[in-house]
Amino acid sequence: MSETFTKGMARNIYYGGSLFFILVFLALAYHTEKTIPERTNADQLTEAVIRGKHIYESNNCSGCHSLLGEGAYFAPELGNVFHRRGGEAGFKYFLPAWMKAQPTGVPGRRQMPQFNLTDQQLSDLTEFLEWTAKINTNDWPPNIEG
């Protein structure tokens, strides 16, 4: 690098540039905060949904599954599982039955553990995944398979 570009100038770009973009970042966080309630239907964020999220976390579901594309890639995406597995009519029956049937024990196939959730917990988890499926995700995932 040439002599006209000094260490001091580089340092100032580092401090000034970082500070500037931190401020822009915080402004965008403010904007995001303003839009999240509407995009996530925060008015439908019931106690059951909140309990369902806690169950999702306490059983480390993200250790195998992705949720809105984040988590592990060992098992199916769950952000739209509500739409994939029964929707309004059927999902509330599908999920508890599915969870109770695990593990399938098919030799060589990936196995989902039995988490021994109560009916109440299964219902909460169902509510959580239904609420999640209705978040405005800019139309992601591209199709029903997640």
């Binding site: 904007h31 995009r39 978040i135 800019n138």
Partner: peptide, 8 residues
């Protein structure tokens, strides 16, 4: 992009 944050 896809977690519910705005389009910006």
């Amino acid at each position: 992009f896809w977690i519910g944050a705005p389009g910006v």
